[in-house]
Amino acid sequence: MKIKKFIKGTMLVHIMLIIFSFIMVGPFIWMFLTSIKTYEETIRIPLQILPKAIQWINYGIVYDKFPFLTLYFNTFFITLITIVGQLLVVSIAAYAFSRLIFPGKNVIFLMMLGLMMVPGQIFIIPRFQLMVQFNLTNTLTALILPNIFNVFGVFMMRQFFSSIPKELDEAAVIDGCGYFIIYWKILLPLTKPGLVSLGIMVMLNTWKELMWPIIVNRTMDKMTLSAGLAMLIGEHTTYYEQVMAGAVISVLPMIIIFAIFQKQFVAGIARAGLKG
């Protein structure tokens, strides 16, 4: 009786999870199936689920039409530089807000809190004009620079610094360490989970951001993958087998990275979410 009830209980959970998983993954399966069909097969009525022969050639065609390597390089490069920039700018400010006493600290911190509530659109027109003035439109720098000063990152990293016991740096002060050494050598290594979260946030953000790249940059060779794919959609929407092949090339690497580092990703996102 008890075993029966147990099986019934987990069965229900399994059924629900299978349905949910299918709703989430099903569209991606269809994306892949479409990408290996011929054009005729994609517009057949009634729908043809599987292709007669796998058309890998679609991938060759979009690869020739579309500079994936450049877009991957741009996305990777922007992510990397933004992470390094944030590591330097954001974490050291977070350390100061967590540990040091200086005039105006609370006021500045409150003002930053206020900034976080302001929707991004408020900044877009002036930032665009700044980029025009700096002669930075249609450059990768334009996609990096405004993203380095991540207010949310300061809040999150400050939380991580504050969770480290103060005795640790007090002992270091007695040993005659300067503030920078305390920050760089002693505390920063201990905030590694925070830095990982920050890195994942930057990565997802660069990966997903759409409006700013299409505003500030014009040519394909200065786009991120996301914005480049959006441009591809604008140009060709008749041959869905090719567009879907392009979409597969764009999403697959992230899915693979995610499948491998699943635990770190999930923990990173959850930390970033919950520390805020």
Binding site: W30, S250, M254, F265
Partner: peptide
Amino acid sequence: TFYRVSIFIPAITMPAAIGILWRWL
């Protein structure tokens, strides 16, 4: 783990791909 990875996939997919995918669906 399998369910979890499946369900989390849209969270790491770029909107551009999601948009074009659903336009097709």
